[in-house]
Design a protein around this nucleic acid. Structure first.
Lengths: 226, 226
DNA sequence: TTAACAAAAGTAATTATTACTTTTAATAAT
DNA sequence: ATTATTAAAAGTAATAATTACTTTTGTTAA
């Protein structure tokens, strides 16, 4: 166990880019930092990696502690390790992104930690390199969403194709053609249409859909061309 | 500098998946490990991350030391951090992949370190989780090669379209149609045809091509559909 | 009863992909 | 010299996917 040289050890942290979707907007969960350096600035959802856990376990632990949610979708993004990236000291940070249903998580716990949901296109100034981390995570989310339907973790269980399209509009920051988007999504055969309509947005009403089953949102086929 | 808790520090290493191309084959540079654990097994090109360098700097330093090459193309793949991944102790490893011209590097230095080039489809048993690391790196190489022409770092300066196609065949482990591949590559407008032919493979001879300029292999357009 | 509205369906033009066939330019054999 | 041989290079036609639209539908509110 001790044949390796432990003199050159590093502090390793994780930072989670937590995406949520609410009121037609893609949002990010941010913390108001209450310790120096950069006290008062806004940061991603971070924490230390413990000696006997993987970085994945650390990222998951930190996020479930705050949101009260389990079975979160999380994916590794990239390591940030410039020696001066954190003015408080040399910290290597592994970035993850997570997708969560804003309605489902424990708001009280989030509030108690001083966290707040911000629309991705109206973010406050982020500390350190967290802005770059967010950009990298969004790019990874786009790659994910270009191959798999990402609605399951962000939308309520029952949703309209218009809602799904709006989520994709937010993720890719462009307007998808309603007819073509509908055609493509239905061709994937991953959603089941319910005999129930949302009448709040139009006179005709839009059918509610739900995901068929757990594995049906994993495609090999491309949904969005990026 | 000392407001962070340095009691829970980690050993951080890098492992490079070094791809080369030679004699029509995609190859991997591997080391015969001369320390326990797994002495005698084959490993990726690894090294420790020093206190005041980024993981990118560490990966680059390790590889230039061994090959004598500079200006290497390298890209971060993923962090491997399961507590028991290395039986010698808890080591967090950041994996990179690199593309190098086998003909151009310092063979003597490579040999002196006990390294050897192995065809990717005839690899020896790799130590620890290095096999998984290799798979992840190959997948990243495919994503890269699906958007950018990757020949520049792997092929000699002048090459035929048949050679380039064979490289892509190796990377994607499938046979691309000669006519369609040619059509696609030429349409990218990234190569310049020389008034010179390679007559070793056919009676007619195949024109040599070279890359136009440094930035011409960065496309937004898709080359290969994955 | 009708106007209004977005949902949902349909369409036609364009572009990209695929699976081929034909022609070409050189060498080697006759 | 002529011809056979070879893979390179060019060409083609069918199919599939994408795009930019138009039309129809079902429901509510005026």
């Amino acid at each position: 166990m001790l044949q390796y040289d432990f003199r050159q050890a590093h502090l390793v942290a994780i930072d989670n880019v937590v995406f949520g979707y609410d009121q037609g907007q893609l949002k990010l969960l941010l913390f108001e930092r209450n310790i120096e350096p950069s006290k008062g600035g806004w940061s991603l959802v971070g924490g230390w990696v413990k000696p006997d856990e993987s970085v994945e376990d650390a990222a998951y632990r930190v996020l479930t502690n705050i949101t009260g949610l389990s079975n979160l979708f999380m994916e590794q993004v990239e390591v940030f390790s410039k020696p001066d990236r954190d003015p408080g000291g040399r910290v290597i940070s592994v970035v993850f992104y997570a997708l969560i249903d804003i309605k489902a998580h424990d708001h009280q716990m989030v509030n108690q930690y001083g966290a707040k949901w911000w629309p991705v296109n109206k973010l406050p100034e982020l500390i350190f390199d967290h802005g770059v981390m967010k950009d990298a995570a969004l790019q990874r989310l786009r790659i994910k969403a270009s191959r798999d339907l990402v609605g399951r973790d962000l939308l309520p269980a029952e949703f309209t194709l218009t809602q799904l399209r709006n989520l994709y509009n937010c993720i890719f920051m462009k307007e998808f053609d309603p007819g073509n988007f509908r055609k493509k999504i239905i061709s994937l055969n991953a959603l089941r249409r319910l005999d129930k309509k949302d009448l709040s947005e139009s006179k005709k009403g839009a059918y509610y859909y739900k995901f068929k089953n757990k594995s049906a949102d994993q495609f090999t086929e491309r949904i969005i061309n990026i």
